[in-house]
């Protein structure tokens, strides 16, 4: 069953349509990637789920029932525009934010201790936030987001401001939270981390969902049927062997071996191999699978083109 789903959400601002019948479905205990170019409507959708913004039409369901105001207590939200009270001490601040999420003071204390020890930041308790570096502030911010053990976590560009080491720490934490049962919405422009973390994505562009599905399915769907062959031998004999079913897209030399990219027009990988094996010595053979980055760019550009064509 879906943990969270939206059905035909419409949000109209005075001068533009922010969301046009957006439906997403997020399975329980999965990581859901919410993708899209700037201004697509991702933040609006996230704010609607957080009940910060109201919507005009449609509905938001959580485990099949309508979202209620009290539900904010089991949502953890790390907004893109985030920050902390600069003049407040780290410990007090974490305590305050945890209590705002409905934790009792003693529960909050206990959990803060656990997380501060885990992140090795116990010594910062009495430090003012303004005295911490940006990366340190981000760590504190992350702790305050997950402190109340939310069932639903929403991360909007979580890696901005983190160095590679802390980014990895964060990724590990996110995966661990998933293991513990949390459902995670993950919005980012960093497609590498999407491939690494997400099970399922929706791509929003111009207020509409233009692509959705599991990462592997999407990649398969958008693959270009191009194989890359690394070989030793005469490129001319390879070319001669290729029938009209195979199209040589690119040919280059890398050190002592040749690399050819060959497009299969309706044929299988095996038939290509059969065709070229007698002619050249194959060093490696692989099918080119598009990265999410390629998919993203391709889908968005296609949509833009269709729009201008119309």
């Amino acid at each position: 069953m879906d943990f969270l789903s939206t059905h035909n959400i419409v949000k109209q601002y005075s001068n533009h349509l922010a969301l046009n019948k957006v439906s997403i479905n997020i399975q329980e205990n999965s990581i859901f990637g919410l993708l899209g170019p700037n201004g697509a409507g991702k933040t609006t959708l996230i704010r609607i789920i957080n009940q910060i913004t109201a919507y005009d039409e449609g509905e938001v369901l959580i485990k099949g029932r309508k979202l209620k105001p009290e539900d904010v207590n089991f949502i953890g939200y790390l907004p893109e525009e985030r920050g902390l009270y600069k003049k407040m001490k780290v410990g007090e601040q974490a305590l305050y934010l945890a209590q705002l999420k409905g934790l009792s003071r003693s529960d909050a204390m206990r959990k803060i201790k656990y997380w501060f020890e885990k992140f090795e930041i116990t010594g910062w308790w009495d430090k003012k936030v303004e005295d911490l570096s940006k990366g340190m502030q981000q760590k504190v911010q992350f702790v305050t987001t997950v402190i109340h053990e939310p069932k639903l976590l929403i991360f909007d560009e979580p890696f901005s401001g983190f160095d590679p080491i802390n980014s990895n720490l964060l990724k590990r934490e996110i995966l661990e939270l998933k293991e513990k049962g949390a459902t995670i919405i993950f919005s980012t422009h960093n497609m590498e981390s999407v491939e690494e973390l997400c099970d399922h994505i929706s791509l929003i562009h111009n207020a509409e969902v233009i692509l959705e599905g599991q990462i592997e399915e999407i990649k398969q769907k958008y693959k270009t049927n191009i194989c890359e062959v690394k070989y030793n031998g005469d490129p001319e004999s390879l070319k001669a062997a290729l029938t009209k079913d195979f199209e040589l897209v690119e040919e280059k030399i890398n050190h002592h071996s040749h690399i050819a990219q060959i497009k299969l027009n309706g044929n299988t990988n095996n038939s290509l191999l059969k065709t070229i094996l007698p002619k050249v010595e194959v060093e490696s053979f692989s099918e080119l699978i598009p990265s999410m980055n390629d998919v993203f760019i391709r889908v968005v550009e296609e949509t833009n083109k269709n729009k201008t064509d119309k």
Partner: peptide, 17 residues
């Protein structure tokens, strides 16, 4: 203004109205 410039306001209003 402080809450707005510190950008903590969105964090807070995800917990309270």
């Amino acid at each position: 203004i402080e809450e707005k410039t510190n950008r903590i306001v969105e964090v807070i209003i995800s917990s309270v109205k």
